[in-house]
Amino acid sequence: MKVIFLKDVKGMGKKGEIKNVADGYANNFLFKQGLAIEATPANLKALE
């Protein structure tokens, strides 16, 4: 799943980066902790 990092995550990515991560990792950790959001077309447009 493609995500946009909202904060730096050690060993994974930096704020503003777009990366592919495992679905479970994104849903169970990154999204719940507020560290990333899904890289949807609307979210990608908002990032620009």
Rank of each mutant, 00 (worst) to 15 (best):
E48P: 07
K32G: 06
G24W: 15
E17D: 10
T40E: 03
E48I: 13
A22S: 14
N27T: 13
I37Y: 04
D8I: 04
T40Y: 04
A39I: 03
A46S: 14
L47F: 13
T40M: 03
L35C: 05
E17V: 05
G24D: 15
A46G: 11
K7N: 07
G16H: 08
G24V: 13
L44Q: 06
K19N: 03
N28C: 15
K32A: 12
K7G: 08
A22R: 13
K2T: 10
N43G: 05
E17Q: 11
A39F: 08
K32S: 10
A26E: 06
N27H: 14
I37A: 05
L6V: 08
P41C: 11
L35R: 03
A22V: 10
N43R: 07
F29T: 06
M12P: 00
N43T: 06
L44S: 04
Y25K: 05
K15H: 05
D23G: 11
K19W: 12
K7F: 14
K7W: 10
G13E: 01
G11I: 01
Q33M: 15
V21G: 01
V3D: 00
G24T: 14
G34T: 03
N28Q: 14
M1N: 04
E17R: 03
I18N: 02
M12I: 13
D8V: 03
E17Y: 04
Y25N: 05
L30V: 02
L44G: 02
L44I: 15
K2F: 14
L35S: 04
V3K: 00
T40F: 03
L6I: 11
V3M: 02
K10W: 15
V21F: 07
G13R: 00
L35H: 03
I37F: 05
Q33K: 12
K14P: 00
F31D: 01
N28S: 14
D8S: 09
F31N: 02
E48V: 13
G16C: 08
I18V: 12
G13D: 01
E17I: 03
K2N: 11
N20K: 12
L47K: 06
L6F: 03
K15Q: 09
M12Q: 10
I37S: 03
L30N: 00
E38K: 08
T40R: 04
A22Y: 11
M12S: 07
N27V: 15
N43M: 08
K14E: 07
K14V: 11
V21R: 00
E38T: 06
E48Q: 13
T40V: 04
A42L: 09
K2A: 10
K45D: 11
G34I: 03
V3R: 00
K10C: 13
K10S: 11
T40I: 05
E38G: 04
E48Y: 12
M1G: 03
G24R: 12
L47M: 12
M1P: 05
M12V: 15
E48S: 12
I4M: 08
L35N: 03
F31V: 07
D23Q: 15
N20P: 06
G11V: 02
V9E: 02
Q33A: 10
K10V: 12
K45M: 13
L30W: 03
G24M: 12
D23F: 15
K45N: 10
I4E: 01
E48D: 13
E38A: 13
A42E: 15
N43P: 02
N27K: 15
G11W: 06
I18M: 07
K19L: 09
K15D: 01
N27Q: 15
P41N: 08
K19P: 00
N28V: 08
K2G: 03
P41F: 11
M1H: 02
T40N: 08
I4L: 10
N27S: 11
K15A: 11
F31E: 02
